[in-house]
């Protein structure tokens, strides 16, 4: 009995570098499969999470919506920093996000984006900060990581998929891909205190809602070209 306890403690020490038996604070992601794969059973509070989707519109923001909705329903606030398009309020409120607890910050210069991220992460009133920086260096991610620890909030950072090849001090790094059947595949590249290399398939919420009538689905694969 004592031996198993000791072993468990040793394993935790190896993983997290701390001996405490207390489980880390987490915000559950709302997707059972992902929660199971993440250490502690959700997003680690006080850390940075890097998300690297291969393209826009595969459900990369959808993945966060349950967490953001829950945070905004509580006392704390959610900040969006330099979103690439308009976060559409009707959809946000549909997903349960309390719009009065959402702050949008538009910064153009990379330095301003970073600064705004740091300020909001440090502020204890923000539970989650979602940002879309154009460029960010690993040294800067470390600064944000420290800010998130100080403010006990979660920083979600959207980066291009190429960034997956570089190293980063973020606590959690996820590569987001879409599968053939339209669900979202999450590859855990790194996670502090857990096992990396796990792949999780999350079903997209709008498919499970079942608003669509699949009978009209055409067999052709879509070839769409956007012309500016």
């Amino acid at each position: 009995m004592t031996r198993t306890v000791t072993l468990e403690q040793l394993a935790r020490l190896c993983r997290t570098g701390s001996e405490s038996l207390r489980a880390p604070d987490v915000e559950i992601s709302g997707s059972p499969a992902l929660d199971a794969a993440l250490p502690g059973g959700g997003w680690l509070v006080g850390s940075m999470v890097e998300m690297m989707p291969n393209t826009m519109g595969i459900g990369e923001l959808q993945l966060l919506m349950p967490t953001l909705a829950r945070i905004s329903q509580g006392e704390r606030y959610v900040a969006f920093i330099s979103p690439p398009l308009i976060p559409f309020p009707p959809a946000l409120s549909q997903q349960g996000l309390r719009l009065s607890h959402l702050l949008v910050i538009r910064a153009e210069k990379p330095a301003d984006v970073l600064w705004a991220c740091e300020q909001t992460l440090r502020c204890k009133s923000f539970g989650a900060v979602v940002s879309w920086p154009t460029t960010i260096k690993d040294r800067e991610v470390r600064r944000l990581q420290l800010a998130a620890e100080a403010g006990r909030s979660i920083g979600f950072l959207y980066r291009p998929i190429d960034a997956a090849l570089e190293a980063s001090p973020a606590a959690t790094r996820l590569r987001l891909l879409s599968t053939q059947d339209g669900s979202l595949r999450v590859e855990i590249l790194k996670c502090r205190g857990g096992r990396a290399g796990v792949t999780v398939d999350c079903t997209r919420l709008r498919d499970s809602v079942g608003l669509s009538d699949t009978s009209s689905t055409a067999t052709h694969s879509a070839v769409l070209a956007a012309c500016s």
Partner: peptide, 13 residues
Amino acid sequence: KPLQMTATPRIVS
């Protein structure tokens, strides 16, 4: 944004 449709898209809904 204007789109150029080259084939029938797979309509979800």
